[in-house]
């Protein structure tokens, strides 16, 4: 279970998040919804450790952790960015196995086998040696998901996963997220798409701008 206690984040004098507490049981999906400027992305960036928090504590299964700690052993959170941020100079396969091989020291052969399994599951067979620019947006997103999963995060976060996709692909992503739930991946989805949130989430957190 992920537990966040009294998270506060300010930019200068402006409070973006005020003493927010969240609990997500393992394998559940939390959707964070709200209008632009409500601090959804800031909240996500705090959870994935790209922003320092002003106060607040993070616990995974009762053990406190620091999301900004980049120690590979502390790899609790993974993320899929809005524009995926695949590395354009690396092929699909290289994108996925870079971190497992270089950071975790997994043997290349083993990492490739694992990656191939996930690629096959996500309908990306045969794309291993393509570069990101040769893929559609939906395919890039699935590669980004595989890349994040390859580091075995306990929690996977998505920033606006549907914003760049057409309606058919939105359903595909929803299906994908629900499938990962079956594998007990805890997931946090930032979206302004209420319908999508209702389709996938066990719980919906509405954030509003702080006046």
């Amino acid at each position: 279970m992920l537990e966040i206690k009294n998270l506060t984040k300010k930019f200068g004098n402006k409070t973006i998040i005020n003493s927010l507490s969240i609990k997500i049981p393992t394998g559940q999906i939390l959707a964070i919804v709200g209008p632009s400027g409500a601090g959804k992305t800031t909240l996500l960036r705090c959870i994935i450790g790209l922003e320092n928090v002003d106060s607040g504590e993070f616990f995974w299964n009762g053990h406190q952790f620091d999301p900004t700690n980049s120690d590979p052993k502390n790899s609790i959170v993974g993320a899929v960015f809005q524009n995926y941020q695949l590395f354009p100079n690396l092929t699909v396969m290289e994108n996925i196995i870079l971190a497992p091989v270089k950071v975790k020291g997994v043997a290349t052969k083993l990492a490739k086998d694992e990656a191939q399994k996930m690629l096959d599951q996500l309908d990306l067979s045969g794309k291993e040696n393509l570069y990101p620019y040769q893929l559609s947006g939906g395919q890039q997103q699935r590669v980004a998901i595989v890349r994040a999963l390859a580091m075995n995060p306990k929690i996977l976060c998505y920033d606006e996963p549907t914003s760049a996709l057409d309606p058919d692909l939105r359903k595909e992503v929803a299906k994908l997220i629900l499938n990962l739930k079956k594998d007990a991946v805890t997931q946090i989805v930032i979206t302004h798409d209420m319908e999508f949130a209702e389709n996938v989430a066990d719980e919906i957190l509405k954030v509003t701008p702080i006046k």
Partner: peptide, 19 residues
């Protein structure tokens, strides 16, 4: 975002620069 993405994958600064 490229650097942030590398950071989330736990790549070190040197690895991020190199790869």
């Amino acid at each position: 975002g490229q650097i942030e993405s590398a950071k989330l994958l736990r790549l070190s600064k040197w690895q991020t620069l190199r790869y």
